[in-house]
Design a protein around this nucleic acid. Structure first.
Lengths: 305, 305
DNA sequence: CACCGGGCCGAAAGTATCTTTCAGGTGTGA
DNA sequence: TCACACCTGAAAGATACTTTCGGCCCGGTG
């Protein structure tokens, strides 16, 4: 539990077992064209690719062996051999599991019932991907820091701002001193107050939202423990994050903007943080939670049966 | 590519996928001592063996590479490489097989990985329930009203307040005039401005949150079209709602407050509303959406690759 | 009891597969 | 337009897998 390792942002020791498809999407933006072709083939037909050698996959995707190996590395495996093993595992899983249940994009002329079904399915998928891709070691570290924090600042703007607020509300309910900032100026102003023992948490899907990175950087420089929740584990925000929690990136379309799935994904991460922190601080959290319910009770009208 | 076959006396074309353990037992008698040791190791710990190279497995079993390969052949594979792939698949299968405990409540002493899995599962369940229980007729009516509304007011406090904000942000993005109120006083003050052709939308899980019902009642009395998103279709709020959208109510526990699943459920409903409205007003919504993305682009650091 | 033959076994050579290096090409920003 | 950075694939290098081959153990036989 040393708080060293600034540089080892790739602390993900174990490669992805079933979270491979999600990982491909998450990392796709940081890939070059050739690597994307390889990643696409791998995610599209795990079983087929598992049967291929490096050379075979290189030929299939019209690239070179080197590129295939590079892609495997980027996905978190030591080399192609290990990626291939993971693919075999994945293939076996979805073989035994239920049907792939491919989902089409939402079209402009879809009937309402279809829209509901597709949205629900997509969000379920997002949840599954996020859970599979979440690094429990990083999560545990973040939880540990939050549980004993003297003070917690949370940064997020736009859609992520609402997630930040959600986390802030929750943490307040269990008696922690947390504040979600949506004003970037105030956020920076407050960040300079932070020091060791405090926690700063930034939420940004793109990983490159300046308004969120700046306060996190300030907090980082002042010695606070910093956490980033982002969909881009290679984004600038991770430079100043002691712990990085990766959200999944679902494919998007015109009628299903990225904000939708990123929000779902972020909320799951936030819920995990909250629940685990509650576990850790159960002695104080439980009565605090109960008290907050109590306080709200009288704000509801009597049942009109 | 000199790929001529040696002697294919192995008529069994496909190797064993999951029936490996059985095959080991079946063929054990016909094996020599060394091969039995290998087969035993393989059947006993597929995951562990999948991680080993020929040399590694040979050392582990105290035999030689040649013996390992011979065993693989006997089991029906072309060579060790393929046996290894099958082992990886087997390992993944029995890995995924052992996760029936997710339906249980979250306990104070659950390990982090379990918490993540349970939360994800529960939220998926909530989504499925919500989608199944959503009345598409009511949804369609609400969408129709929103699509042509002159002005839209959204009410929500507490956790539901964030959902209200989310919907407000989204509708603004497609060019509608929407405002999410979290201050009950201001909400009522604004509600008196509404009239026919406007839409008021209240979000409350309990269905009996006075601070939200009051502005909806005022809007209703002034002739606006009113919509309620609630988990209690029999609650007081529905008295003043022209259209009621029901969210699901998941079981809750001490470590999983109702706010969590109600929020998930509400967000799905909100997403459905938004997506359907976007469909309806596609001509104006699409360019507005594109413009809003454009406007945000420069707020991200250039370091994006 | 000595000899012989069959077949199991592993060391080492041989081959396929994977990894790394390096130079050429391509797009991008100044 | 130029220069730079970075992607890309060919080929060399390393590793893992397969095959060959001879030794050795064991049971049978003269």
């Amino acid at each position: 539990m040393t708080n060293d390792v600034k540089e080892s942002f790739t602390s993900e020791a174990p490669p992805a077992p079933a979270a491979l498809a999600a990982k491909v999407r998450t990392l796709a933006p940081s890939m070059t064209r050739s690597m994307q072709r390889v990643a696409e083939a791998v995610a599209g037909d795990p079983a087929g690719c598992a049967a291929l050698t490096v050379t075979g996959l290189a030929e299939l995707t019209g690239t070179s062996e080197a590129t295939v190996v590079r892609t495997a590395r980027l996905l978190g495996y030591p080399g192609y051999r290990d990626l291939r093993l993971a693919l075999a595992g994945l293939a076996a899983q979805q073989q035994s599991g239920r049907a792939p249940a491919v989902t089409a994009d939402i079209a402009v002329d879809d009937p309402i019932a279809d829209v509901v079904a597709k949205l629900a399915y997509d969000e379920q998928q997002t949840l599954a991907d996020t859970a599979a891709g979440l690094d429990t070691v990083q999560l545990g570290a973040a939880v540990a820091a939050l549980a004993v924090a003297r003070r917690i600042d949370i940064y997020g703007v736009g859609a992520s701002g609402l997630v930040a607020q959600d986390l802030g509300q929750k943490l307040l309910r269990i008696g922690l001193i947390a504040h979600a900032h949506s004003d970037p100026h105030l956020a920076v102003t407050n960040a300079v107050q932070l020091r060791s023992g405090d926690v700063a948490l930034a939420i940004t899907h793109s990983g490159s939202t300046g308004d969120v990175i700046e306060p996190l950087r300030v907090a980082f420089d002042h010695g606070a423990t910093t956490v980033a929740i982002t969909g881009r584990p290679d984004g600038p925000v991770t430079q100043y994050a002691d712990h990085v929690l990766t959200t999944s990136t679902a494919r998007e379309s015109e009628l299903r903007p990225a904000a939708m799935s990123s929000r779902t994904s972020q909320l799951l991460v936030v819920d995990c943080l909250f629940t685990c922190v509650t576990q850790r601080t159960y002695e104080t959290a439980a009565p605090a939670l109960a008290a907050s319910y109590e306080a709200l009770a009288h704000r509801h009208s009597p049942r009109t049966r």
